[in-house]
Amino acid sequence: MMPYDLSPLFLSLKVATIATVCVFIVSIALARLMVRKDFFGKSFVDALILLPLVLPPTVIGFALIVLFGVNGPLGILLENLFGFRVVFTWVGAAIASFVVSLPLMYQSALAAFEKVDPRWENVGRTMGVSEWKIFRTVTFPLAWPGILAGVILAFARAIGEFGATLMIAGYIPGLTETIPLAIYFAYEAGQMDKAIFWVVIISALGVAAISWVNYWRRKNAIRIGRE
C-alpha cells in the first residue's frame, strides 16, 4: 500500500514525456537548419531559442499566460478552433515544460550535428544518395550520443519544471499537480514526510536516467567512435 496518492508521479511522467517528444522533434529540425543554412537574422533566432535559459521561470509563465490565457491570441484561437483551454490544465504544464527544456535539447543537438564530419555526408552525396537517407543513416546515428544526452537533459528539466507550470497550470490536486508542485505545497502545508517522499522519487528518476545514459555511452563508445 502506497502512503500517498501517486497521481503526481504519473502526471509528471505524462507531461515530461509529451514535452520531451515535442522538444526532440522541434530541436532536431531547428538544430539541423541552424547547422546547414545561413540566413538573415540567424543569430537573433538562435538567441530567441536560448532565451528561456536565462529568463526567470516567472517571466516564462507570464509570457505563456499572455499568449495562452483566456484573452491571449493563442488562447482565443485554441478556444475558437477546438473549444479547448490551456490554462489550469495539464496541457499548460506540458507547454511550460516544452518551453523551458527546448534550449537544452537544442544546444545538445546543435553541438552533436556540428561534430559530425561533413565529409561523411559528402561521401553519401557523391554516391548519389538522397539528403534524407544521408540524414537518417549517417548524420543522425553519428550525432545520436549527443542528441541522447540532450533528450535526458530535456526530460529532467521538463519533469522538474515548477515556476512557469505553477503560473499557467496552477495547483489543482489530481489535475495539474506535478511532483515539483506536490513537494512545494507539501512543504508549505508542513507535510515533511510527503515532501521527502516526492524528493526521493524525483531524485531516483534523475539518477536512473543519468546512470542509463552513462551505461549506454560506455556500451556504444567503440562502435560509434571515429575510425
Binding site: R119, N122, V123, R125, T126, P141, L142, R223, G225, E227
Partner: peptide, 19 residues
C-alpha cells in the same frame, strides 16, 4: 547537384562511416 555527378571520391583518411 553532387548526387547527379556520378563521381567516385576517395577522401583523404578515407572517411569510412564508423558506425
Amino acid at each position: 547537384k553532387i548526387q547527379k555527378r556520378k563521381t567516385g571520391y576517395l577522401f583523404q583518411d578515407y572517411a569510412l562511416f564508423p558506425h
